[in-house]
Design a protein around this nucleic acid. Sequence first.
DNA 1: GTCTATAAAGCGATAGAC
DNA 2: GTCTATCGCTTTATAGAC
Lengths: 199, 199
Amino acid sequence: MSDRRTAILEAAATVIARRGVRGLRVEELAEEAGVSKALIYYHFEDRTGLLRRTLAFVNNRAERYTAEQAAAGQPAAETPAGPLSRLEQALLLELQDLPHVRENSTAWGELRASAVFDPELRGELALASVIWVREVADQLGEARPTAPESALTASAERLTALLEGLSARWLSGILPLTDARTRMREAIGVEVAHLAGLD
Amino acid sequence: MSDRRTAILEAAATVIARRGVRGLRVEELAEEAGVSKALIYYHFEDRTGLLRRTLAFVNNRAERYTAEQAAAGQPAAETPAGPLSRLEQALLLELQDLPHVRENSTAWGELRASAVFDPELRGELALASVIWVREVADQLGEARPTAPESALTASAERLTALLEGLSARWLSGILPLTDARTRMREAIGVEVAHLAGLD
DNA sequence: GTCTATAAAGCGATAGAC
DNA sequence: GTCTATCGCTTTATAGAC
């Protein structure tokens, strides 16, 4: 993929984080990326196509940094103790006030909100959601190997949906970040205790 | 408040549920409300002002039907058994495929999403959130009178945030309604068990 | 208070040169 | 591949009659 194309996608994620999917103007995107409007239409079909590509791009980028996070733990000595700590770390990764994370979370929330009115965006979204739930369920399974698969999936669905709810509140300024992180940590504890109680 | 004004606000909620906040066109709203565009500008400052008023309106309406729901239980014989059933009913109220509920949930989700980029919308949102959390915390307190206040509030924050997360997934078509309702019921059970375990 | 008509601006998309 | 210039539709907002 060309550098320009990638630069446009990076810029699109930035602009979406600033203005929302609905507020994204092709002209502002062009300025942010340092290219002309016409070039954007050359590289992408139209505005909707651009949005679809940006969704995929943000999605990949999130997977990439989750993977890096997981890999980074291995060589170092401070590898988090067990599967539980890794799960906690993975989920709290999305609740951080770093430009990159905030950008991803905002873009993701926007695209989910847009999908309510634009069925074209749903495919990608549903796929990402299933993968995300499965990953969390797997990590829960490592922590609680005796818990039934269905219970793990249900817990994972609750935890990821909660994460999205907390993230939305944080980004819309009605819940401080530290509170969101605390609620998330507590929820993991509560869910794990619940899974333990099923035996 | 004039009938016309209210009719416009009702129509605005309907159109927002159909097209989203960004998709709301003053012309479509005028048709929906059966009035001219100019009348909308006569009654409301501008498009942004209209949106602010609609947020307040939807907010009030949601409180109203929650209250009605609570009141409706009293005279009838089929009042749900205990405080727990009432809590469950209150939370599941937002996860129903009825035009009215879907409209409120969609409009609410849209306005929350918009608040990420428009600080003007945040005040109303934050207030509604606090009230909602408090109500749920109170109902949890009735079910578990010995649980500490802080734990009740934390549980309520998790449950309401989860509800918003599940609602967003349902409305964006990536989670079937029945699943969302099941996850919500399970979460209430898990949280109540957690509160019981604190004694 | 409510309408019709219209101005003014915004914005997606394309043509054509280099 | 990339730019400048521009078209043309859409949408917000206002003027002025009733």
